[in-house]
Design a binder for these strands. Structure first.
Lengths: 118, 118
DNA sequence: TCAATAGTTCTCGTATTATTGAACTAAGTA
DNA sequence: TACTTAGTTCAATAATACGAGAACTATTGA
């Protein structure tokens, strides 16, 4: 997770429509959703949806899989998890190195807890 | 945490400059930083910094305190914590209600763990 | 091969956003 | 009071993003 990647992810969620898209995909879980279903559910034009999905794909927030003549999209929850870790890791810099080493174990849980203590 | 508030927060972080501002404030912890220090550290014009800080203030991401002729800014880490919780809560919708009840205890830690299992 | 469907890309008009320089307000100081 | 410093606001410009319509590609099926 680089600074530019983090910026890209925030850009990918920095509009009501894209947050809606994200939440819709989160709700659909592993099944994901086909583009047409999403356009109907969110009541947005297919080309507009495609525009936003492209940006989210570029940021890595969603993945896509061809399915006959459909395209199925899924939320990349692992990346969101990485983002949270990244945002909480920044918090560590001002802490003692000892605490950093204890919490820099890839355990997102402890990162989040440390974060709230900042 | 509402959907619009979440959108506002993402907008507040959806640029390299603002992410830099956020990280700078995170690093400074409870001390926070005076606007002039931040402008120097980030090498951006004071009025440009003011522009971005205003947006971040509006989103609630930072707080400000008058200090003589200076203004001291601090990161609102509690809100970031809320945002993380909100983003992970969305994940719950597709899960069983039982699991939701178990994890909807305000414990950001378990939310994050549940999230990565989505 | 032709038509229909799913989705993307292109183009254009509009609206929002960022940056810059100048003016402005407020607080400290000689 | 006048001057300096800190920070914000304003105005103009440039850049960027969004949405709508039309055209395009690819897959499916008659």
């Amino acid at each position: 997770m680089t600074r530019d990647n983090a910026t890209q992810i925030f850009e990918s969620l920095a509009s009501g429509v894209r947050l809606d898209i994200w939440r819709l995909l989160i709700k659909s879980g592993q099944n994901g959703m086909v583009a047409g279903e999403m356009a109907s559910a969110l009541e947005i034009a297919p080309n507009s949806l495609s525009f936003h999905l492209k940006a989210m794909l570029h940021a890595g927030l969603v993945s896509v899989e061809q399915e006959g003549r459909f395209k199925r999209y899924r939320a990349n929850t692992a990346l969101m998890s990485d983002l949270i870790t990244y945002m909480t890791e920044q918090c560590c810099i001002k802490q003692s190195d000892a605490q950093c080493e204890v919490t820099n174990t890839g355990d997102i849980c402890s990162s989040a807890e440390r974060y709230s203590d900042c």
